[in-house]
Simulated assay, not measured.
Amino acid sequence: MGEDLLDLARSPLVLLLVTLAGYQAGRWLQARTGGHALAQPVLVAIAVAGTAISVLGVDYADYRSATELIAFWLGPATVALAIPLHRQADRLEGFVVPLLVATVAGAATSIVSAVLLARMLGADEALEKTLSTKAATTPVAIALTETLGGIPPLAAVFAIATGIVSAITAPAVLNLLRIRDRRARGLAVGAVSHGIGASRMLREDETEGALAGLGMGLSALAISLLVPVLALVLF
């Protein structure tokens, strides 16, 4: 009986439900804390799912396969970020050139600083290549890292960790720097925090959320174009 229950707990349906329950627990905690920066639903879901698969002894590959449905819907959810952007299209007037310049400069800075910092700390070339893609969205980071000869699974960890940490800290940093322009705030958070940051900014202001979604896409594109070029110089 015990073995049967364990097999049931490791089933794809249960693993999927555990993941969804973890995310819902994160949303509940976020509501209970008044939207506290540390109460990120994604962070809570990772903690719950990570604990569950560790206790149950589930391999990551099996967990990934069991939750493929969630991964599938990430695509449509990302595309849906274009809706608030369309509503805020008039806010882009006079902002397109600064937006593009900031995105390219930010992407280049992210790549170069990550590689040089890793090199200063004694990292090998494979880790340097892996870190160079950390500011891109997870699928882009994985694909770029694989092309460069880095470590794709680790690239996913860095991209997700960067997104979570940035979503928690970026708005406070922008407040500290007295950056009030909602377009600039949204662009900055989306460029480094990906979908997690865009989700948070949408809760705070529709303009910030719309620009965060745009920043996420443009940053991923800029990094995809710059990494192969800068790699010729850096590696």
Rank of each mutant, 00 (worst) to 15 (best):
A49M: 15
A102N: 03
T130N: 06
G94A: 08
L116F: 09
S54P: 04
P98I: 11
L38K: 02
A136R: 06
A45S: 13
V96T: 11
V42F: 05
L74C: 11
L116H: 01
A123Y: 01
K134R: 09
A126V: 13
P84I: 12
P84Y: 02
L69C: 03
T103Y: 02
V96G: 00
A102D: 10
D90T: 14
A118I: 10
A37V: 10
G50H: 03
A39M: 05
A135R: 01
Y63A: 08
E68Y: 14
L121T: 05
T103Q: 09
L99Q: 07
A61E: 15
V112Q: 00
V96Q: 01
E128H: 00
E125A: 06
K134E: 05
I111P: 02
A102Q: 06
L127Y: 00
A45T: 09
A136P: 00
W73I: 12
V55A: 14
G106W: 07
A66C: 01
R119H: 00
A107K: 00
T138I: 05
A114V: 07
F72P: 00
T67L: 13
V48T: 03
P84V: 12
L99I: 02
T130K: 09
L38G: 10
L56T: 09
A45I: 04
A118M: 14
I70F: 07
A77M: 14
S54D: 12
T67Q: 14
A108I: 13
P76N: 06
S65H: 09
A102W: 02
V79D: 07
V96K: 04
V42C: 05
S132I: 08
P98M: 06
V104C: 14
V58W: 14
R64G: 13
A49H: 10
E68N: 15
T51Y: 09
T51K: 02
V115R: 06
L100S: 06
E68R: 15
G106F: 05
